[in-house]
């Protein structure tokens, strides 16, 4: 089905290396691929192969050395820090391995946070938050603080937070890496559903083959080179 969808993200000649003293460590070498509307992409590969680095570049929180990343026709590598920040708030939702909720905010408030930049009224924000928390099945946990929630529940709150602004792309770096099997399954099913029902692009870094199974496309990174799934 992804074949008939238009290309949203176009990555060309993307390279990045780190300099440690006099040593140059190439992390990504000439990466080229496209991501279509509604694609669920899994990035796999051994530790240190550059998965997180690539994900961060696509999410606009890190800078490439060379190459281009075009999202919906906009060249994000050319954006200034400030423009990039604005772009992220419109286009990217983040899901992290360790959930990274703000511990002193309730589930509701955590999900409300990204909406503060959207110029909505309090009432509108409440509607959005309640709807999104409903979607991740946590309506009854809205007033709970992260410490009062299980890992799986926290990750679902994090998914709601990533989703609430209706972004173009969801990026997830090992979203199930810290969860037991059942919770991981829940989270993956939720992501699959979000992808299916809202036709959102999901880019997920994972070590877990079971997680990768949910994806439409699997790409492997090895020593900075990208291979499509055989």
């Amino acid at each position: 089905m992804e074949k008939e969808n238009k290309t949203v993200v176009r990555i060309r000649g993307l390279s990045k290396s780190y300099v440690r003293g006099t040593q140059v460590i190439p992390v990504l070498n000439d990466i080229n691929f496209d991501i279509a509307q509604g694609e669920f992409l899994a990035l796999m590969g051994p530790s240190g192969s550059g998965k997180s680095t690539l994900l961060n570049l696509l999410a606009g929180i890190d800078k490439a050395d060379t190459g281009s990343i075009e999202v919906e026709g906009a060249e994000i590598t050319a954006l200034s820090e400030k423009e990039l920040s604005l772009w992220r708030s419109d286009h990217v939702g983040f899901i992290f391995q360790f959930y990274n909720l703000i511990p002193v905010l309730t589930a509701f408030e955590n999900v409300e946070l990204p909406l503060l930049l959207k110029g909505l009224t309090k009432e509108e924000r409440r509607e959005h938050v309640e709807m999104t928390l409903g979607l991740v099945n946590l309506t009854d946990r809205m007033e709970h603080y992260p410490s009062q929630l299980s890992g799986g529940q926290q990750q679902r709150v994090a998914i709601a937070r990533a989703l609430v602004t209706d972004p173009t792309i969801l990026v997830a770096d090992e979203p199930t890496g810290d969860l037991d099997r059942a919770s991981a399954e829940d989270v993956l099913n939720l992501m699959e559903r979000v992808n299916r029902e809202f036709n959102k692009i999901i880019i997920m870094v994972t070590h877990d083959p079971r997680a990768a199974e949910k994806a439409h496309v699997i790409r492997h990174l090895e020593k900075g080179y990208l291979y499509a799934d055989p």
């Binding site: 999410a59 929180i61 920040s85 772009w87 708030s89 419109d90 983040f94 990274n100 503060l116 930049l117």
Partner: peptide
């Protein structure tokens, strides 16, 4: 620091 980074990912300046 990590929390402020999360804020920044969301676009807070």
């Amino acid at each position: 620091m990590g929390e402020y980074a999360i804020f920044k990912t969301m676009g807070f300046g």
